[in-house]
Computed example of a mutant assay.
Amino acid sequence: MSIGNSPEDERPFEDVSEEARPSIGRALRQARLDAGLTVDDVTNATRVRIAIVQAIEADNFAPCGGDVYARGHIRTLAKAVHLDPAPLLAQYDDSHGGRPAPTPAAPLFEAERIRPERRGPNWTAAMVAAIVAVVGFVGFTAFKGDDSGKSAVAEGGSTPTSDKTTPIPKTDKPKDPDPEPSDSAIAAVPQDKVTVQVSAVDGRSWVGVKDHNGRLLFDDLLKKGDSKTFQDSEKINLVLGDAGAIDLYVNGKKIDDDWQPGAVERLTYTKGDPQAG
């Protein structure tokens, strides 16, 4: 009998390298580049620090501070670059020992273990009952006295009445007219400032807003139906993560640019007629 390799050892070697599926970091980085976003744009949109974004894109999850925080950062970055986070989280769990176990819930409160405490006589209720009885007796006495007075009046004749009756003047106060609807805040924008209103009407979008000094006025996710208004004395700089979901009003006029869904737009507006830079 010869000793050799078994037929199983001669089977073609299966390719299980990382080339078959891109890593989490490479997938996030490619999606960011496809969306036309820089690392600064993602940091401004998600508030995840630049160092952590760069580390995750390099598949280094140590700066996240643990599996729970790493999963949260992966989910946040995936949404910012329009990527489904579920496959990435599953890939992370496969390579890091599975999903973190949930914190055990506290034991339920067992009502049957509580024994009722012994209570003494309820003196407060007794005092209240006594007070009610006294008040009732006083009221009954007063009511009987009032009936005696009425009987005396009936026996002695009718009570005198005044011949003259003072008429009650009637005042026909006109109703307040319904207030006229005021002009919208957009139509009444001041002429010495630049006013920009951003409304998410067709979906949600990350929005970044800076004034003419570069100071950050707003940096957050604008949900569908939300609206924000910004003013500056000279200039407003905008970054729209999904310009196709946004309606934009500048100095009281609607900007009718045909932005496509998912398009990232960087815009600058000044006073007077809207001028996008």
Rank of each mutant, 00 (worst) to 15 (best):
I3F: 06
N5L: 06
E14N: 04
E14F: 06
E14I: 14
D15S: 05
D15H: 11
V16A: 13
S17Y: 13
E18H: 12
A20T: 15
R21A: 15
P22Q: 14
G25R: 15
G25Q: 15
A27N: 04
L28T: 08
L28Q: 09
L28G: 11
R29N: 14
Q30E: 13
A31T: 04
D34M: 08
L37Q: 09
T38L: 12
T38M: 12
V39E: 08
D41E: 06
T43G: 04
R49C: 11
R49P: 07
R49F: 08
I50C: 08
A51L: 09
A51H: 12
A51K: 10
A51W: 10
I52M: 11
A55Y: 06
A55N: 14
I56S: 06
P63T: 10
C64D: 12
G66H: 12
Y69F: 11
G72W: 11
G72M: 10
H73F: 15
I74V: 14
R75A: 15
H82F: 11
H82G: 07
L83V: 06
P87Y: 12
P87H: 09
L89A: 11
S95M: 15
G98R: 03
P102Y: 01
P102W: 07
T103D: 02
T103R: 02
A106T: 05
P107W: 08
F109E: 05
E110R: 01
I114A: 03
P116G: 05
G120F: 00
N122E: 02
N122T: 04
A125E: 00
A125C: 02
A126S: 02
V128S: 01
A129E: 01
A129Q: 01
A133Q: 02
V134E: 02
V135K: 04
G136I: 08
G136C: 10
G136T: 10
F137S: 09
V138I: 13
T141N: 09
A152S: 15
A152P: 11
A154G: 06
A154M: 10
T161M: 09
S162Y: 05
T166F: 00
I168G: 03
K170F: 04
K170H: 07
P174R: 13
P174A: 14
D176C: 01
D178K: 15
D178H: 11
P181K: 13
D183G: 03
A185N: 09
A188R: 12
P190H: 02
K193R: 13
K193P: 08
V194Y: 08
Q197A: 14
Q197V: 14
Q197P: 05
Q197T: 15
V198Y: 07
V198A: 02
A200E: 00
V201G: 01
V201A: 04
D202T: 11
R204H: 07
W206R: 00
V209Q: 00
G214F: 14
L216R: 13
D220Q: 13
L222A: 04
G225L: 11
G225D: 03
D226W: 02
S227A: 12
F230K: 02
F230N: 04
K235Q: 12
N237W: 08
V239A: 10
V239N: 06
L240N: 01
A245W: 03
I246W: 00
G252Y: 03
K254S: 09
I255P: 01
I255R: 00
D256I: 12
D257F: 08
D258G: 03
D258Q: 08
G262Y: 01
A263Y: 02
E265W: 02
R266A: 07
L267W: 01
T268L: 06
T268V: 14
G272I: 12
P274F: 13
G277K: 10
